[in-house]
Write a protein that binds this DNA or RNA. Structure first.
Lengths: 142, 142
DNA sequence: CAACATGTAACTACAATGATTACATGTAAT
DNA sequence: ATTACATGTAATCATTGTAGTTACATGTTG
């Protein structure tokens, strides 16, 4: 199991739109950098648009950021591309036997632990912004 | 995407072996509590055994814990059942375009962030032991 | 040897992913 | 308005992982 690459592709897209802000970021242009096909990029762009992170319009070439770099966290992107449902990073087997001490309690016991673990992960994503990513890439280029 | 229920089932199995320590925990008995089939339970038991968490022997009915309750963390179980490969909770799209500033740096920029996030999640799992789970279940019964 | 449990392999149905094609919709320039 | 081109979106496909199930080989004990 791995969290879908839509997440890393989403980060790539937003980062490139910023770095290419003086140019026109079409789905074809972005697809070439990501190394996939334009339709897949457009699907993800649709999700980012729906989440209010980027601006795209039918018929008009190119995408722009809809928010300041500092106001787009990696958690925003993660949620936008719908890779993990709320509180469902871990799946819990269903219908354990209610006639068994463990069976009738395991779900309620495990659920808060999984929630805490998932939240800890998401907090890290929330602490990083696209600005951090852009900055790091620019530094790596020098 | 969700992390396989093998993880929660693994926790269930170990917990039940402990709570049923005066009885015999066969794969059939465990399967009934988990509400699945014995072969699936045996597959997971094989993983837990390989990881040194439980003791099982071909031909001999029942399983026992191989370690003290306090020494089995949820991270141990998580790693045992092989639900997420090391450093691969998040997948990163491969072969981004090296001719693009973003393409040639995105992987190296994102990788440590994802590692930090995954580690934060796993630290939570490491802080909880089967003893905590058993204790919570017993408390819930009263 | 009989009864029974574990260890595995094989097969199935199902769902998610990412690639790809195709086409409808929308915009702008001529 | 027609042409050129970009976005939006649906449909299809191959691949992969999951969980369920059956079957049987292997091992132990009475």
């Amino acid at each position: 199991m791995s969290i879908s690459s839509r997440f890393s592709v989403g980060i790539h897209i937003i980062t490139l739109i910023e770095i290419n802000k003086d140019g026109v970021s079409t789905s074809e242009y972005l697809a070439e950098s990501v190394n996939t096909n334009p339709a897949f990029i457009r699907k993800i762009m649709g999700m980012l648009k729906k989440a209010g992170l980027i601006k795209v319009q039918p018929g008009i070439a190119g995408a722009e950021l809809a928010k300041d770099l500092l106001d787009i966290t990696l958690l925003d992107v993660y949620k936008a591309v719908n890779v993990v449902k709320d509180n469902e990073l871990f799946s819990i087997h269903d219908n354990p036997n209610p006639d068994c001490t463990v069976g009738r309690n395991i779900q309620n016991t495990i659920e808060p632990i999984f929630f805490t673990a998932q939240t800890a992960m998401e907090k890290v994503l929330e602490s990083m912004t696209i600005k951090d990513v852009v900055k790091d890439i620019i530094e790596k280029e020098n």
